[in-house]
Computed example of a mutant assay.
Amino acid sequence: MKAIGFKESLPITEENSFIAFETEIPTPSGHDLLVKISAISVNPVDFKIRQNAAKDTVLDEPKIIGWDAVGVVEAVGEQVSRFQVGDEVYYAGDLTRSGSNAEYQLVDERIVGRKPTSLTLAEAAALPLTALTAWESLFDRIKVNPATDKGKTVLILAGAGGVGSIAIQIAKKVAGLTVIATASRPETIAWCEALGADFVVNHRNLKADLETIGHGQVDYILDFVDLEGYWDLAAELIKPQGHIVSITGSGTPLNLDVLKTKSVTFSWEFMYTRSMYSTPDMDRQHQILNEVADLLDAGTLKTTLTTVLEGFTVANLKKAHQMQESGTTIGKTVVLY
């Protein structure tokens, strides 16, 4: 099968930052599905791992990355019970295994969902990683209860990004929250509003803008861009007994004392925790992806796809990474095989 990977962590403009090569089609066992991939999308995790996985070294074999895919089940392991050959599926994969930048991939059925029937291949490929991240942030970390928390405020940092774009929809349409998203360019403001944000505020003037709309403090904060840069301000903006969730990490230790007097809860969200550690509730991601598929097919949620690159080629993968590295993309970019 054809795959695209890298042996060195090089700038994306370098010729060998990605290389195409041939490798064996893997054989499924246990809970694994062998999926023939139809489309993939690119997320920040892709370029971050490409930049760091082979620093100051040359790998013996090319590393295959990629953590969003849609495709068709070609074969199944002996313990598979949720899918059968011919099923269309979508998933975000497992950080510890070979990725989706290939023609075929093995993936555990417990982190796979059925492809939404109403979406095209490209539209579906845009969603798994970001939808799982947003859903887990709201319902597994904060534990929002739509029945009792309806109308509470959530501030979404980087509303027009991949995760922010689906988080706005889930927070508004599923959780019933009052959604405040950050954006600064006319096109990103319009995007957030179209997705259902109740308010869009400028991250460069965040405190003043929140006060202007009558929400000087918020119940929840979802950080999808820069925890370290927003930490002190987030501690100021969060309500007493509020909850902050971040996916971005920090280069320095966080001062948790700033949350103490408000009894604020802070949580990390790492979508790969369940697959990386084979947690007892690993099947939760299968359930989430199926529920998201139902919501997409019902028209409650919509795809966040904005760009399609046609053809599984080194050039297209490089272009997708360059777009992600720019930090200015809106929604999601998909490579269609």
Rank of each mutant, 00 (worst) to 15 (best):
I4S: 04
K7Y: 04
S9C: 03
L10T: 00
S17P: 01
S17Y: 06
I25A: 13
T27K: 14
H31V: 07
H31I: 07
D32P: 04
D32T: 05
L34E: 03
I37Q: 03
I37G: 04
S41F: 03
K48D: 09
K48W: 07
K48Q: 13
A54C: 01
L59G: 05
D60A: 11
D60E: 12
V70K: 01
E74M: 10
A75S: 11
A75T: 01
G77N: 02
E88H: 12
V89T: 05
V89R: 05
Y91I: 04
Y91M: 12
A92G: 14
R97L: 11
N101C: 11
N101F: 12
Q105K: 15
R110W: 08
V112C: 03
G113H: 00
T117V: 13
E123C: 03
A131D: 12
T133I: 10
A134Q: 08
L138Q: 05
L138F: 09
N145I: 05
N145G: 02
N145E: 12
P146W: 00
G151Y: 03
A158R: 12
A158K: 12
A158W: 11
G159H: 10
A160H: 07
G161P: 09
S165L: 07
I166S: 10
I166V: 15
Q169N: 09
K173L: 00
V174W: 07
T182P: 12
P186M: 09
C192Q: 11
E193C: 05
A194Y: 11
F199W: 12
V200Y: 05
V200P: 09
G214Y: 08
G216M: 07
G216S: 11
I221D: 07
V225S: 12
E228Q: 13
E228Y: 12
A234G: 09
E236V: 02
I238F: 03
I244H: 04
S246G: 08
S246C: 08
S246P: 04
I247G: 14
T248G: 12
L254D: 10
V258S: 10
L259Q: 02
S263F: 13
S263A: 14
E269K: 08
E269S: 10
M271A: 15
S275N: 03
Y277F: 15
T279Y: 05
D283W: 15
D283H: 15
D283M: 11
E291C: 00
V292L: 10
A293Q: 04
D297Q: 06
G299S: 03
T307R: 10
V308W: 00
V308T: 15
G311H: 04
T313K: 00
A315S: 13
H321E: 04
Q324F: 03
E325T: 01
S326R: 01
T333C: 10
T333N: 07
T333W: 01
V334P: 02
